[in-house]
Computed example of a mutant assay.
Amino acid sequence: MSLAAPSSRRRTRAAALGAALLVAAAVATTGGPAVASDGDGTGAGDRSTTREAAALTGTAKLYRSLGDDITFSFDAHLAAKDTGDPSKATGTFRFSHYLDGFGASAEVKVDCLVTGGKVAVVSGVITKSDLEGAEGRRVGVTVHDLGREDRLGYSWASTGSPVEQGPMPKCVSSAPFERVKAGTGDFKVLPWEPKL
């Protein structure tokens, strides 16, 4: 049993219906919910976030029939303000390759990131590695973000080692010929949309 009088309930329903109609009208005329303006058209206090120009994130292991433990991890970003210059990308990526207790790993400082659709090419200079002669060398990696079936390629594909590949320019890599091990891929590519 309600304690509100019948006329009070009708007023409450009418007010709720009126508010719902105002929201619906705002959505219909603006294409989205109404946002209070702070005078410069950016919304109340400009609480919105700007979409970055490009990104490559995530970790996965590569599939190898012999059981090699090969892992790649990415945290590479191109800020919106730098959309015209992919060489201003920031972040890091890491990779490692081990089999039967032998192998090496490397950490890389990003120096270029270009993405298109679901494909990303990232390069950087190795800052730390237990592979002799690798520190200071630029390497590149290509990722194709295919959901659970991501693919990956790397600049040293034809030489077998970053140490053997020789000098290379920024944002260069190979086609993504490697497959990600089932259940490990979570690479995410944010497409670059430069003003051409």
Rank of each mutant, 00 (worst) to 15 (best):
S2T: 15
A5Q: 12
P6E: 06
S7A: 14
A16L: 09
A20Q: 11
L22A: 13
A24C: 03
T30G: 07
S37Q: 08
S37F: 00
D38R: 04
D38Y: 02
D40V: 10
T42K: 14
T42M: 12
G45P: 01
T49D: 12
T49S: 14
E52F: 07
Y63K: 04
R64N: 13
D68G: 00
D75E: 13
A79T: 13
P86A: 11
P86K: 07
S87M: 05
T90Y: 07
F95S: 07
L99N: 11
G101L: 01
G103Q: 06
A104Q: 10
A106P: 09
V108C: 12
K109D: 14
D111Q: 04
C112H: 02
V119A: 09
V122F: 10
V122S: 10
V122G: 07
V125W: 04
I126K: 08
T127F: 02
S129L: 11
L131E: 15
E132I: 09
R137F: 06
V143N: 04
L146S: 09
D150H: 04
R151W: 00
G153C: 03
A157M: 13
A157W: 12
T159C: 02
P162I: 14
P162L: 15
E164M: 12
P169G: 15
K170W: 00
P194H: 06
P194K: 02
K195Y: 07
